[in-house]
Design a binder for these strands. Sequence first.
DNA 1: CCTTTTTTGTATCGATAACTACAAAATATC
DNA 2: GATATTTTGTAGTTATCGATACAAAAAAGG
Lengths: 203, 203
Amino acid sequence: MAQRGRPRGFDREDALRRAMEVFWVQGYDNASLADLTRAMGINAPSLYATFGSKEALFQEAVALYVRTEGSGIWEQVDTAATARAAIEQVLRTTAEAFTRGATPRGCMIVLAAPQMQGANAQVCDALKAHRQANGCLLERRLTRAVEEGELPASTDCRALASYIVTLQHGMSIQARDGASRETLLAIADCAMAGWEALTTDPN
Amino acid sequence: MAQRGRPRGFDREDALRRAMEVFWVQGYDNASLADLTRAMGINAPSLYATFGSKEALFQEAVALYVRTEGSGIWEQVDTAATARAAIEQVLRTTAEAFTRGATPRGCMIVLAAPQMQGANAQVCDALKAHRQANGCLLERRLTRAVEEGELPASTDCRALASYIVTLQHGMSIQARDGASRETLLAIADCAMAGWEALTTDPN
DNA sequence: CCTTTTTTGTATCGATAACTACAAAATATC
DNA sequence: GATATTTTGTAGTTATCGATACAAAAAAGG
């Protein structure tokens, strides 16, 4: 088959990745079309012909983010040997990922539109859904740990999952404010230091 | 003395409070002059004559927020009997303040410009300074607790303070995402459950 | 009354937002 | 080579952004 008309003069994946970085750094509303086209190395008509709209481009950028950047943080939750190891891995990987030199600091899902009140409600809702999915993922892992006997039946899996994702969200703010990797790791250590107390049957 | 010219037709404090709520809900960049003047019940020239600029209005709104809304959370840190009581009070008051029906959910200082990349760098810097001030406040309180013998000398006051403010920042995201007061209180309880482990000399 | 001072509403300013009309350019098919 | 198809860059669209010019309005001082 091959395409009929004039071939595209840029790499779609590469342009999408550059757009993702702009959204990651500036957020959805603050990323202007001019910012995006400059970073992507294309003009507005090419952007619209390829991605449809600013919102559609953002949604694709979110999907790319989740697939490439976010996966390192959450992918081992189900495969980790224990719930404790899973959560420690999440927090420590977060500390590392949020302080890489090459990528923006903090999580795009948390920082791109946190007011839940931007021009585009669908953008806010999609990001919120991704944030909540992480909490559900952790809660399921903790519930499984209870079923497997790692944790006592008295464990409040939902509260514990909320607590961890809340801390993880806060780490995005800290990272964007310039916190060092050591600081973020120390924060993770603080959370893990309380693990025994959080998962011991009080009776 | 008294003022010479035509008297102002609106209450300055009341207008500022309404502006604060707009910034609180929408963030700095997403709050347009039209949004602000509509909420304040005045026209743009009155806003500029009274407050100077959008940025100056925002800075005043931040000061009002810290003085009225934020004070309830942080004011008892120094006066609380123990560091533990101070921190528990911070977290529990946060859970309550972030889920009042009358005010926007979550903290304006965290949510108004978290990308650190908006049009106005001074706005970002001011908010960042306020965020970090809370961490310093907690760290000083913990250091005092070590000096007073409440906590062992081995306590990592800076890490512990960073951990608490990180969780508190994350609670803003959770609150804006719709978390209930019960959920936020449960998160606070999780943090406090680990207190002994965090403040016990390992030796 | 008249002058001075300040606030008010109207009606804008230039800049930029997201987005697109259009024709030249570049390819495959015939 | 002629035609069909798609992408390209240029130049624009309308709408809204933050911020103001300006004169009428409303007060105090003389």
